[in-house]
Structures are given as structure tokens and as C-alpha cells.
Simulated assay, not measured.
Amino acid sequence: MPFDLSPRPLNPAPVTPAMVWPNGAKSALFIGFDVDAETAWIGNNPSNVDRMVTTSHGGYDARVGISKIVSLMDELSLPATFFIPGWTALAHPAQCEAILKAGHEIGHHGYLHKLPDRDKLDEAFEEIDRGYEALQQVLGVRPIGYRAPSGENFPELLAYLSKSGMRYSSSFRDDILPYRHADHGGERGLVEIPVNFAFDDWNFGMTSRTSSRPIFGRDAVLQMWIDEFEATHAWGGVTTLVLHPQVSGRPMRWHLLRDFLMHVQSRTDVWIATGAEISDHFDALEAARAEL
């Protein structure tokens, strides 16, 4: 089918009015971890399954990264949302159970971290179903929040997520405030908690033997995160983190993340919340506006 390139907003979701955050907060912080483990290396390139050094990047999650991140959240008494592919839960159940036991929210991140493809709807929907099944089997939970593997989505997938009981997404890059996606296929749009690409640690702390992308050091990343957070805070938005234990669970980057989070905590007017809590708050504000 030909692509529809007619001029129009490609995301028809309405703009959110200015947010009122809980407890007099001026902005919000959403700490989200993508627990990809080896799926980051095999989901879109299955031939890597036999490249043990390549997949060892992801193996760091289970051997070191997850426990270090959970310990950091405990040290700072911070709530987080961990988006876990179903494959990761099945391959590393003890480490994923430790996340749940620590009281953090479990989010959906596909099954094998495959890039959702609009031309392969059955495969895209299967990724959702298998992810649910694995998380239910291992952790006994059915998530209400979704982060798109490889960061992609499309209307039919949003509708399928809504139909399956998902309540929010955290994948899009087009706002600093939560908003509700447009209805599609008779399904109510999800709440979107948008992402700022500057807070994706993969961009600055991950490369591979086959990539020429440099790794950025502490001074560059920490100052950028602080500056971006402060500007988002001044605008009353939500600072959404896209972090990976195989990146931010590394020694120097663990300390970098710790210092950033302590900077945010030094403010008394930031609401630090899980995706579920932010989604619930958005729903409540939306319902209150509807009654006016």
C-alpha cells in the first residue's frame, strides 16, 4: 500500500493543559529501567545468539547490573518502574523476582525486544501476548504500563495494548507532559508519559565492537542531565528516564546516576513517582476537568 504523506499531525493526540502535580510539586520525575538483558542483542538480530561476547553485554544485567540498580533505589528510597521483556523474566527469574520483591512496578517491554512492525501485525501482537504470559508465569503480575522495544509504535498496536488492559505507554518523544493518545479501533487511547531522548543512557554509555559510536564520560552526561532536568522542572514537565542496567549498572555510570538522582532529591518540589502513579494522577485530573 502507498504511504499516506498528506500534511497532518502524525500524532493526533490532543495537547494536555498545564499539569497540577501532587503535593505542590512543580515537576515530576519518572525513573524507568529497561531490563533488556540479552534480548537487546538477539531480538532484532537472532544470529547474535551464538556470539557469546556480543550477548555478554546483556548478560551483565543478570550477573551484576540488576542487583546494583535495585540496591541504588533502596539506598535512595526511590520508586522505579522496570520494563521487562518476557524472555528476560524467563531467562533470569531470580533477578526479576528481586525487582518485584523490592516493591517496584513491573512494566511490559515486549517478549524478545523485537522492533514492532506495522506490516507484521500478527508478530507484533504475539510479542505483547507472550510478554504478558511470561511476566504472569514468573512474577505473577499483569503490567499496566508499556515501553515499546526499540522505541517504536503505531495505531493498531496502541489499540491492541488498550484492549489487552494496558493503561499507559512511555515511548513517544513529542511532549514534556503526559497526554492521552487518540482513540483507535474503538479502544480508548492510552496515557502517554513521554520520553526525553537526552535521558536514554544507551546513547552515551553503550557501544559494541562493530560500532564506531563513542562512549561519553561522566562530566558530559551528568551536566547534560542536570541541565535538562532543571529546564524541564522550570517548565513544569515530567523528566522521564530510559535507563538500562547493562549501562547504568556499570561502576562509573552507577555513580553518575546516583549523583543525578541525589541532585533531583535535593529539591523539595519534585514528585518522584512510578508510571502507574503518574497515569493514575493524569486520569484523576482528566476526570476532574470533565466534571467542570
Rank of each mutant, 00 (worst) to 15 (best):
S170T: 02
A62S: 09
F216G: 01
H255M: 12
T81M: 07
I226G: 03
Y60H: 12
L158H: 12
P17G: 09
S67C: 08
I278H: 06
P251G: 14
E97D: 06
V238A: 11
A159V: 03
A13K: 07
G249V: 01
P14K: 15
M252N: 13
L285V: 04
N44D: 15
V270L: 11
V191H: 04
E97N: 09
L177N: 14
E97C: 08
L115W: 13
D280H: 11
L121A: 12
H255E: 15
H108K: 06
L261Y: 07
V195Q: 09
G43P: 02
A13I: 03
R188N: 10
F204A: 07
G186E: 14
V270Y: 09
A290S: 13
V49P: 00
F197I: 11
P194N: 13
E152K: 14
L256W: 08
L261D: 08
L112N: 15
E126G: 03
H244Q: 06
V49S: 13
G186M: 13
I226V: 04
V20T: 12
P214S: 08
A287Q: 13
A290C: 04
H109I: 02
G217K: 09
T239G: 06
A273T: 02
T240P: 00
V20N: 14
P22K: 15
R218Q: 05
Y146A: 00
K120S: 11
G131L: 08
H104R: 07
I106Y: 09
R213W: 15
A182T: 06
M224E: 06
S211L: 11
H92V: 01
A288I: 02
F3R: 15
T207C: 06
M252G: 07
A25R: 04
A98V: 01
E228C: 04
V138Q: 07
S47P: 02
S71L: 04
K26F: 06
R258C: 03
A276E: 15
A13S: 13
N196I: 03
R267W: 10
N153W: 10
I84P: 02
